[in-house]
């Protein structure tokens, strides 16, 4: 039996700023170890909000979440985020060079930086020519998106929450990113929940489909796409 990495139940979220609009109510879901989930649904239905809640960047109004068999209240939020890493669709470069950005994880956690692994990840997403001493703020949108992804992958989380991470990429880079994520999934068992509005991409990257619309989450196979 494959263990569950992350599960949630009775999860509800309302935006109080906009006349108490209910985004979703009483939803439940499970991510098994190494599972490849593509997350679809119309824009503005709360997909990003759900991923941000699962990544502890936002808080649900009610509901339970369990990671690696332990409920949320037994976790230190920082340790939770190291296991469940949210990657935003709008990449934010931190102050400094590309290398400073890549070293962030090792700097934060006083861990050794692995330059060869970082170089491997960069070249896998088509950034082998990227000068590490380049100011990160000067990168193009597509470069930022890939550097931000590599920066998160260096954390080696158990589960990736990917929020339209190829939205600024051309086809070549998009396929490269898909290949890298699926390779890491195969080699290291890193599961993912990947928001995508691209049906072809969804079919390539997903084994299971989450669909969020009208406040409810439904699960299905890729054949429902």
């Amino acid at each position: 039996m494959i263990d569950s990495v992350l599960s949630f139940a009775n999860l509800s979220k309302t935006i109080s700023a906009v006349s108490n609009r209910i985004i979703f109510a009483q939803i439940a879901g499970t991510v098994l170890a190494g599972e490849k989930i593509v997350f679809v649904g119309p824009s503005g239905q709360g997909k990003s909000t759900l991923l941000r809640i699962l990544g502890l960047l936002d808080e649900a109004d009610s509901g339970e979440m369990v990671l690696l068999g332990r409920p949320l209240h037994q976790w230190d939020p920082q340790a939770w985020r190291m296991n469940v890493c949210y990657v935003s669709q709008t990449p934010v470069m931190l102050e400094g060079t590309v290398e400073d950005n890549l070293r962030t994880v090792s700097r934060l956690h006083h861990a050794e930086y692995d330059p060869s692994y970082a170089a491997h990840l960069l070249s896998s997403v088509g950034l082998e020519e990227m000068g590490l001493s380049k100011e990160a703020s000067t990168l193009s949108g597509g470069e930022k998106q890939r550097v931000a992804l590599v920066r998160s992958l260096l954390l080696r989380p158990k589960l990736l929450l990917l929020d339209e991470i190829t939205s600024s990429l051309d086809d070549v880079s998009k396929y490269a990113v898909e290949r890298l994520i699926t390779d890491i999934n195969r080699q290291e068992g890193t599961g993912y929940v990947w928001i995508s509005h691209d049906r072809d991409q969804a079919a390539r990257i997903g084994e299971k489909v989450w669909s969020l619309s009208n406040g409810t989450l439904s699960e299905g196979g890729v054949s429902c796409l």
Binding site: Q78, A79, R81, S88, V92, L94, V105, L108, S152
Partner: peptide, 12 residues
């Protein structure tokens, strides 16, 4: 964005 990026990378 900066604060949330750092949080998502496991920063305190």
């Amino acid at each position: 964005g900066e604060v949330e990026t750092l949080l998502s990378l496991g920063a305190s």
